[in-house]
């Protein structure tokens, strides 16, 4: 199949970027989207041009590295799919594909389709953990955890940290990401002691990074490659409210 690509090209963080058109001829429908970009890049290198820079690593949908907005939808038109798992058979011959980076102030573009998502790391650093020293853990089965709590925690924990939720949100909100991590830990008894601190600190870190606000459209959940539910956002909203109020009454 033959496609026309309009790809965002930007030299570095400070340079202005623009959409540049490329012909992607003779594309095998069995290719993954990233393999299609590989092929385009091989041709660009052959022609003496600079290849399109894009983030990718595991190419099996779990590392969360790949990121691109295709025709206005992060990770492209297929649901529950990362770009690396998106195959060209979902497009038609002659399609025009606009390929842009994930866009948000806390995700500055560093080149072409690559963005800096370290804001996510800073959010986890602020409280996305259980404070347990190596070697100090009790025997694992001393604390039975109801199966449904474990399952809910796993539903939340499936987040791959790709940032599509932010990219899809009209406000570039990171609520789904933050909620997934806080809900995973807050649902489990191991995470309970730090529950309030966790939500207060993680939300503060999220705000400080400059993400926008949730506007309850659930686009985040709709584009999420792991289909993380917006229910976790409600859980975060509830836990944050309780934590804020509890903290006010706690004295000090």
């Amino acid at each position: 199949m033959n496609l026309k690509l309009r790809v965002w090209r930007q030299k570095d963080r400070n340079a202005p970027g623009k959409l540049v058109e490329y012909e992607a001829g003779d594309i095998d429908p069995e290719m993954s989207f990233l393999e299609m970009l590989d092929v385009v890049n091989e041709r660009l290198i052959g022609a003496g041009d600079e290849p399109i820079a894009f983030d990718h690593d595991c190419r099996e949908g779990i590392c969360g590295t790949c990121s691109a907005t295709i025709n206005g939808i992060p990770h492209g038109p297929e649901r529950a799919t990362t770009v690396c798992q998106l195959h060209m058979r979902h497009f038609k011959d002659g399609d025009i594909l606009t390929i842009e980076p994930f866009r948000a102030k806390p995700f500055p573009v560093i080149r072409d389709l690559m963005v800096d998502r370290s804001a996510f790391d800073r959010i986890i650093e602020s409280g996305g953990f259980v404070s347990v020293r190596t070697g100090s853990a009790p025997e694992a089965n001393t604390l039975p955890i109801p199966k449904d709590a474990a399952e809910t925690a796993m539903d939340a924990a499936a987040c791959i940290g790709c940032g599509a939720c932010v990219a899809a949100c009209k406000n570039a909100s990171a609520m789904l990401f933050v909620a997934a991590k806080s809900s995973q830990l807050n649902t489990l008894p191991q995470g309970k002691p730090e529950k309030d601190r966790r939500v207060l600190n993680m939300v503060a870190a999220m705000d400080e990074a400059g993400f926008g606000n949730c506007t309850n459209q659930y686009e985040c959940s709709a584009v999420c490659p792991k289909t993380i539910s917006e229910d976790f956002i409600a859980q975060l909203n509830r836990e944050y409210l309780v934590a804020s109020v509890k903290q006010s009454f706690a004295g000090k």
């Binding site: 259980v130 853990a137 694992a140 474990a150 924990a157 191991q190």
Partner: peptide, 22 residues
């Protein structure tokens, strides 16, 4: 065995049985 203890304490959501055990 210690690894399982450590990871469980960190909040790794290992699969569980209905009794709540791993």
């Amino acid at each position: 065995a210690e690894i399982i203890d450590q990871c469980t304490a960190q909040g790794v959501p290992f699969a569980r049985e209905y009794g709540g055990h791993l």
